[in-house]
Simulated assay, not measured.
Amino acid sequence: MIDLQGASSSPAISCYLFLPLLFLSLTYLALKSTTSGGRRGRKLPPSPPWGLPIVGHSGLMKPPIHRTLHALAQRHGPIFSLRLGTRLAVVVSSASLAEECFTKNDVAFANRPRLTMAKHIHYNYTTMTHAPYGGHWRNLRRIGSLEIFSAHRLNASLPIRRDEVRRLVAKLARRSDGGAAVVDMKSAFQELTFDTMMRMVAGKRFYGDDDEARGFREVIKEVVSRGGATNRADFGAVLRWIDGGKLERTAREVAGRTDSFLQKLIEEHRSEKKEGLEKRNTMIDHLLALQESEPEYYSDQIIKGLVLVSAL
């Protein structure tokens, strides 16, 4: 027998009693959440025969990931499933199967997983890249195809693209100074793409040395780095409990800074129009003009979401 009264006065014995109970409780919650959501009875593609409590097959995901997935495909076939925490993932490595997923079954694969960073940064899953399939998503796609990426809008921005290419060529020429020079072309093309897009969207470049440019680059860099499916707290209730709300707080903070910057851009263009300044014919100007006639389709939040997706 164990003297519970005596054990309570002994930290070592209390620890021995508490840790096994904690482990059993976490394992139970993990297994319960894994089998929830109507997965019982569903016919799933084959999967690796083992999976750990709480983390599932996450332990198999070792870099380089593409080689790991290739090895699993060789073992389990061109389509197989993985349990990443409490989330189910299906891996397709066959071109014909991938075509079938995005043609015959495109609606079934239209939605993206609801992750914490996407919830806050992408306005509660309402941007074009994270909105669930439905009327709102179709409206965003209509706006994108007709008002942003149409042939007319792209032709109107042709001078911007030409000017940015000239700037890049001139910059490379200055660095070489008539001789050979080592140039990081990856960074150069990233700068070219980003500045071209932001001039089309907002009418100004953001790869300068001023505080605004640096601030925006930092915001976009953080959104990109934190926006992927790499946050463990998104893969199960137990992992969220272990995280202690850290991911949620970080997401709110990054989303707040991102929204403030995007709203500032909109207000700048709105103010220029009120002051009668020359229109810059940017994406923001165009969307604000449409907002006057169709405010329900072109709210500030929708415009900010479109700008964010374009910048990313």
Rank of each mutant, 00 (worst) to 15 (best):
M61S: 02
R87Q: 11
R112D: 10
L146F: 14
V107Q: 09
P45M: 15
P48K: 05
H70N: 03
H70D: 08
G56N: 01
H130G: 00
R114F: 06
A95P: 01
E100Q: 12
F109C: 11
Y123M: 09
L88Y: 06
K119F: 11
L72V: 03
P159W: 06
A151H: 12
T116A: 05
H136K: 08
V169C: 13
H152G: 11
D106C: 07
S96K: 10
V169F: 15
P132K: 04
L115Y: 02
R138Q: 15
S96W: 06
I54G: 05
I121K: 00
V90F: 06
M117F: 14
H120E: 15
V165K: 09
A95E: 02
Y133L: 11
H122Y: 11
S157Q: 13
A118F: 08
H120F: 15
P78S: 06
S145F: 11
H120C: 08
N111P: 03
Y133S: 13
H76I: 01
R142P: 07
Q74Y: 03
S47R: 15
G144D: 02
H136R: 14
L140H: 11
G37W: 11
G38S: 15
A118G: 10
L115G: 00
K43D: 14
M117L: 12
E99F: 00
S47T: 13
A118L: 09
P53C: 13
H76R: 01
D106N: 07
R42D: 12
E99C: 00
V169K: 08
G51L: 14
I54Y: 04
H66Y: 13
P159V: 05
S96R: 10
R67G: 07
G38N: 14
P49K: 13
M117K: 05
F102W: 07
K104F: 03
G59L: 10
Q74V: 06
H122T: 08
R138V: 08
L82G: 00
P159A: 03
H130F: 09
K119V: 05
R75M: 03
S81N: 02
I143N: 03
R112W: 08
A98W: 01
Y123G: 07
V90R: 04
R167E: 07
H152D: 13
G85S: 01
F109W: 11
M117W: 10
L97G: 00
A71W: 06
L60S: 04
G85M: 00
R39A: 13
S150F: 14
R114Y: 02
A151F: 10
R75Q: 12
S93E: 08
K43Q: 14
L172C: 04
K43G: 14
G51K: 14
S94Y: 02
Y125W: 10
P63Y: 01
K62F: 08
R42K: 15
F109I: 03
R75S: 10
S81D: 02
L84S: 00
F149E: 10
V107I: 14
I160F: 02
P53Q: 13
R141I: 02
T86I: 01
S58Y: 02
R167P: 00
S157F: 12
I54C: 05
I54T: 09
E147M: 09
W50Y: 15
P49V: 12
R114W: 03
K119E: 13
A151C: 06
P46Y: 12
S96A: 11
H57E: 09
A108K: 02
